[in-house]
């Protein structure tokens, strides 16, 4: 299995709180890694460190074997780190399709010079992007929402659109932050299917999720975090079977 992401000795503290304590982690192509742990364990912080929202105090991050420590958030997205957000952060004043069209890693149409000197090229690029966006929406059964304003849609659909927008970035790494929080019913199946398809296409996927059955259905491997540390790395079954972790997290 080809390694996509490697994290080495990642360290981050805010005042007295350590959110990442010597984190080592590797994710390979086609793998779906579950990231579980209690609230405040440092899961979202780890996503923020990997995607570049936060700067680590120490440690390194490698994407496809290449060190990306110095790259800011937007450059990492262009290198192919795509992520979703717990609270979606959709563009509120825009339609679903327009939200999607801001998603691609690199889009020639969004340039003032192209606006002035390459309108035909922009039209072609725009048409191609629209087709791709409609394709992704189609896979999720959301074509009919394309021209709706995102704020007018029910929560579950907004959640799916958050994922769909991120999928416009076709990079090698996909970070999903609590995709199932607040989602019920049909969206569950859709989310499972789409994430599996993405992994099958060769992407590395990492999912933070409290819904353990979602993780069990989806992931072969999972990591348990608490207090900024990785306590265990193994199969989901192993993690659930572990008495200490059960006590820490599942509160049984």
């Amino acid at each position: 299995m080809t390694e996509i992401l490697r994290v080495e000795g990642l360290q981050k503290r805010f005042g007295g709180i350590v959110v990442s304590d010597n984190i080592h982690l590797t994710i390979g192509a086609g793998e779906i890694l579950g990231l579980i742990g209690p609230n405040g364990a440092g899961k979202t912080s780890l996503f923020n460190l990997i995607s570049g929202v936060l700067r680590p105090d120490a440690g390194s991050i490698f994407l496809n074997g290449q060190k990306i420590d110095g790259a800011p958030l937007y450059k990492r997205a262009r290198m192919g780190i795509a992520r979703t957000w717990q609270n979606m952060l959709l563009f509120r004043t825009m339609t679903v399709l327009d939200n999607m069209l801001v998603g691609p890693r690199d889009y020639a149409g969004e340039s003032v010079t192209r606006l002035a000197f390459g309108r035909a090229g922009v039209r072609a690029a725009e048409a191609a992007m629209r087709a791709r966006a409609m394709g992704i929406l189609g896979r999720m059964g959301l074509e009919s929402t394309a021209s709706s304003m995102v704020v007018d849609l029910p929560f579950g659909q907004q959640k799916l659109i958050g994922l769909a927008r991120t999928l416009m970035n076709d990079g090698p790494l996909l970070l999903l932050d609590e995709p199932m929080a607040g989602v019920e019913g049909a969206a569950y199946e859709t989310m499972q299917r789409v994430v599996r398809q993405e992994a099958a296409s060769g992407r590395a996927v990492c999912v933070v999720e409290h819904n353990v059955s979602f993780i069990r259905d989806l992931c072969s491997r999972a990591v348990f975090m608490a207090n900024g540390k990785i306590l265990q790395d193994g199969t989901v079954e192993d993690l659930i079977a572990s008495a200490t972790l059960t006590e820490l997290y599942f509160g049984v």
């Binding site: 937007y74 997205a77 563009f91 801001v102 890693r105 969004e110 340039s111 970035n169």
Partner: peptide, 28 residues
């Protein structure tokens, strides 16, 4: 023309959610 085209779409996205906009690979 600037605000109606793809560039304008990016501008309103930036105004709506700068963090998400940046995390999609745009230099706000």
């Amino acid at each position: 023309a600037i605000v109606n085209g793809p560039y304008g779409r990016a501008i309103s996205a930036m105004r709506d959610e700068e963090l998400a906009f940046t995390a999609l690979g745009r230099n706000a």
